[in-house]
Nucleic acid binder design. Structure first.
Lengths: 160, 160
DNA sequence: CAAAATCAGTTGCATATGAAACTAATTTCG
DNA sequence: CGAAATTAGTTTCATATGCAACTGATTTTG
């Protein structure tokens, strides 16, 4: 049976949440201050930096963003000439996006900063512990996705 | 010098962010659906469940919330008779908050659900790896806080 | 002691977010 | 083929969030 008490400071979802918030803010402060880029915009840029050319849909899948967020980040980045858009003539619903020269520069500037930040965060952790963290995050994400499906089924009719 | 490439799916801040999002949503869906409680409200409830009686300020510190968020969550919880408020007669700026009977019930119902969820998430991880995850999150939070200070100093005048 | 500074908590305002409705294009199927 | 369903992406709308300004209380200090 389940315990009656919960220590917030030891509760995994809480710890994940505050840790990610601190980590994310620390990084976002840097690139937002220097380039005026928001977190969703950075995700789009890094997706395009990694894969050259993608549709908005691809970006959403790759960076785990919903399509509204992608749409808005893309609109801003286009306006600021950070990315380019090329309509797919074979299917005019979608468009291929890629970094413009300006986007390349920003990407090239942010990547080292981001990796440096990551290095600083992990500095004091032994290799083995970093590897354990990696595995743990993978498992947690996978389990959480599964549980999300399960609970949604339960809440909706389940039968389909 | 720094590498030129960044794989989003292997980048720690990104992984933390999407993992925490999935984990947090999975849990929040449960208690929001069953009790109409938001995440900030749950944090206030769990803080009070852990410490009996606290001021809003204490809650903010304990649960890493800003005071606006605490204020709003507290207002809602008071309105719904989930918590009680007793003004501190010695310092009338602040007030002591604690769970009302209804809050106790909700807390007693959510805690097992939350711990069960945590258990499910961690099910497949060996004890040693869970311990490593714990240590890693502690270190990361600490480092991120340090880095946040450092970057803020750098952005502002630094001198003070 | 009175003015200034500080503190707890609230509120106004501007921005961020996501679900759902929508548009335009394409595909499916009777 | 043409109506219905599906898909990519946008927009609307309602809510969530946080900073900064504010209120009222207390403390500090000249």
């Amino acid at each position: 049976m389940a315990a009656r008490r919960l220590i917030l400071s030891q509760f995994l979802p809480y710890r994940l949440s505050i840790t990610m918030q601190a980590v994310s803010e620390g990084l976002a402060t840097r690139y937002s201050h220097e380039f005026g880029i928001t977190v969703p915009e950075w995700r789009v840029i890094s997706a395009l930096g990694e894969h050259q050319e993608m549709t908005a849909r691809d970006i959403a899948a790759h960076a785990r963003m919903n399509k509204t967020m992608v749409s808005r980040a893309v609109a801003t980045l286009l306006e600021r000439n950070i990315i380019l858009r090329r309509e797919n003539s074979g299917d005019r619903r979608e468009a291929f996006l890629r970094l413009a020269r300006r986007g390349d520069d920003i990407y090239a500037a942010i990547v080292p900063m981001a990796l440096d930040y990551e290095r600083k965060l992990l500095r004091d952790l032994p290799k083995a512990e970093i590897a354990a963290l990696d595995r743990a995050l993978t498992v947690l994400l996978h389990r959480a996705d599964e549980e999300a499906l399960a609970i949604n089924d339960k809440i909706n009719g389940d039968a389909e």
